[in-house]
Amino acid sequence: MAEANLIILVICLLLYVLLGGADFGGGILELLSRGKASKIVSRAIAPVWEANHVWLILVVVILFVGFPSVYSTVLTALHIPVLLVLLGIIARGSAFTFRHYDIDEKTPKAIYSAIFRYSSVFTTFFLGVTVGGLILGEISMDYQLGFYTVYIHPWLNWFSVSMGLFMVLLFAFLAGIFTVSEIDDKDYIIYFTRMTKRLLISLVVMGAIVFATAKVAGHPLLKDFINSPISVACIVIATLALPAFWYFLNKNKGNWLRLTAGLQTTLIVTGWFAIQFPVLVKTNSGHDITIQAAKAPEQVQLFLLIALVVGVLIIFPAMGFLYKTFKFSEEPES
């Protein structure tokens, strides 16, 4: 039962990366594009906005109900980067809403936009740093050690920083895909296609840097990847899908494009999960927290699973209706 809940957790995480990632990336993409182009980004992303926080909340809830020691340990060791992510979420979420609803005046809109864009980069970066801290496994559970060792070192290192940059590029890339497949204006399709291609290339380079910094930090990331058949399969498929992706991007096949980009992101997340499992949190003392050690009793898992399955049965049709109402028609009105 705990395994089922863990799989749902990973799916929620994936959906947060795919859908929330496009939102976060929207702000980054606005920063990268100038003038009218940035307006196009915000218009392409706005209508599905309100719903995306829930994936993160679900991840958190599954953690503290199903795997409480993971939740407590991670939020203690990574308190600082998580706090920075939260501050970013507050800033960008409210700035986006204010920009959308405030009276059309230049100065406040420009301020909201600036806050939204820069805090999108900031939030995504620290989200990546947090994930980096989780992967690296320098988390210490001996709280008697110094402040630096316990609360800073697990996330402030080259590997986590490069994970932060990787995340920024990944989210910007996802938003690029979303925007390209959403707009009709020919010139801007070309503009954003070019930008998305550049982002993809940077993403591949950054991925290599992530592996390199892992090596420098003494983390056998590459070796772990190679030793797990699932991860190898993920990497092979993701690489094989690249030419197809390039082709769809050039031909501007919106739905295929989203599908391949979604597939590749799914593969990244699955590949990572495969090398991590059954460990949920790596620590530097060698006493890693495994699913066996962390899981709450069966009875709890059962009711959690029921709540999640019923939730999905309610949510997915509703989401389908939302997308059907807005995505297959033209201009969004406000």
Partner: peptide, 21 residues
Amino acid sequence: GPIFGMPFSWEGTAFFVEAIA
């Protein structure tokens, strides 16, 4: 968490439905 957390998972659903609606 495991004891009183269940209402939060229902709350997640309710919040999501609210957002969609």
